[in-house]
Design a protein around this nucleic acid. Structure first.
Length: 266
DNA sequence: ATGCCTGTCTGGGACAGA
C-alpha cells in the first residue's frame, strides 16, 4: 500500500500536475495540503475521473487539506484538531482507507518569528502532539503525513545549508523540540529511517535558483506508528515533479507498507 | 539584506507562503 503526501500549493492551478503525478506514481492514498480552495470548489469530479475518491477540508484562498484514495472514498474520521474551537484554519483531516488510519497535516509555517504566527504554530503543534498520542497507541496502522514546516536538523540530509535560515520558524529550537517530542511518542520518520544521511529534500523555494542548485529542505514527513512501521517496505521523494512546468514548490513524498503479517497459525 | 517567485482573491494591489 503506497501512501503519499504532497503540498500542491493551490489545487486549481496545480490540477494538471497532480493528475499527471497520480497517473505515474499510482499511490493508493494521497494526502494533499494547501489546496487553497473552498469546499464547494474542490475538483472532486476530476479526481473521480482519475479513479480517486476524496474527502477534503477546504478554505477559501488559504490552507486546505484532502485525502484521496484509489478506487475508494476514504472514510472521514476527523476534520480539524481538537483543543481550540476558535481555530478557523483548515489544516487537519483524518480518514481511514483499507484499515489504515491516515492524517493529512498542514502545520502552520510560523513566520515571522517571534510573533503571533509563531505562537500559533507552537500551539497548533501542542494540539497535534496531544491528539497524536492516542493515534500512536492504536492497534492498527496509522500514518501522519504532511507538511510539518519543520527542518528536523541542520544535517545536509535535511537542509542544503542552514546559514540563511537560522532565524526562520522552520529551524527554531522550539519547532524542532516539538517535532522531537512528537516522534518520542513512538512514531517513525519513514524517510529518515530508510535514508539516513541522504539529502531527501521535499521543498525548494521558487526563487534564488533554489531548485537549480538543489538548495532544498526536508519539511514534508510521513510518521508511522509501530504497527505501520512494522510494515514499512520503502520510502522516497518524487523529486522530478518539482522540476516540471508550473510546479508546486514541494515534491511528493511517499511510503510503501507491505502486507500485514499474518497472526497466529493458518 | 532582501519574498528575488507564485497562487489567490481581487479589482490592478495586497497578502500569504517558507
Amino acid at each position: 500500500m503506497k501512501i503519499a503526501t504532497f503540498n500542491v500549493n493551490g489545487i486549481s492551478s496545480r490540477l494538471p500536475r497532480v493528475l499527471e503525478w497520480l497517473a505515474e506514481a499510482q499511490p493508493d492514498v494521497a494526502c494533499l495540503q494547501e489546496i487553497k480552495t473552498s469546499d464547494a470548489t474542490f475538483p472532486e469530479r476530476a479526481f473521480e475521473d482519475a479513479g480517486y475518491g476524496a474527502v477534503w477540508h477546504g478554505q477559501k484562498g488559504f490552507n486546505g487539506v484532502a485525502v484521496l484514495a484509489r478506487g475508494a472514498r476514504p472514510t472521514e474520521l476527523r476534520r480539524g484538531l481538537p483543543g481550540d474551537p476558535d481555530d478557523t484554519h483548515s489544516r487537519y483531516l483524518e480518514a481511514q482507507v483499507d484499515g489504515v488510519t491516515v492524517a493529512s497535516i498542514y502545520l502552520p509555517n510560523g513566520n515571522p518569528q517571534p510573533g503571533p504566527k509563531f505562537d500559533y504554530k507552537l500551539a497548533w503543534f501542542e494540539r497535534l502532539i496531544q491528539h497524536a498520542d492516542q493515534l500512536c497507541r492504536q492497534a492498527g496502522p496509522v500514518v501522519l503525513a504532511g507538511d510539518y514546516n519543520v527542518v528536523p536538523t541542520n544535517d545536509v540530509a535535511d537542509i542544503y545549508s542552514p546559514k540563511s535560515w537560522l532565524n526562520d520558524a522552520l529551524l527554531q529550537p522550539e519547532s524542532r523540540e516539538a517535532y522531537r517530542r512528537l516522534l518520542a511518542q513512538g512514531w517513525t520518520d519513514a524517510i529518515h529511517q530508510l535514508h539516513p544521511g541522504v539529502a531527501m529534500y521535499t521543498f525548494w523555494d521558487f526563487f534564488r535558483k533554489r531548485w537549480e542548485r538543489n538548495a532544498g529542505l526536508r519539511i514534508d514527513h510521513l510518521l508511522l506508528n509501530r504497527p505501520a512501521a512494522a510494515r514499512l517496505d520503502s520510502a522516497g521523494v518524487d523529486r522530478a515533479v518539482r522540476g516540471r512546468d508550473k510546479p508546486s514548490d514541494h515534491a511528493p513524498a511517499w511510503v510503501v507498507l507491505g502486507t500485514p503479517a499474518r497472526r497466529g497459525r493458518t
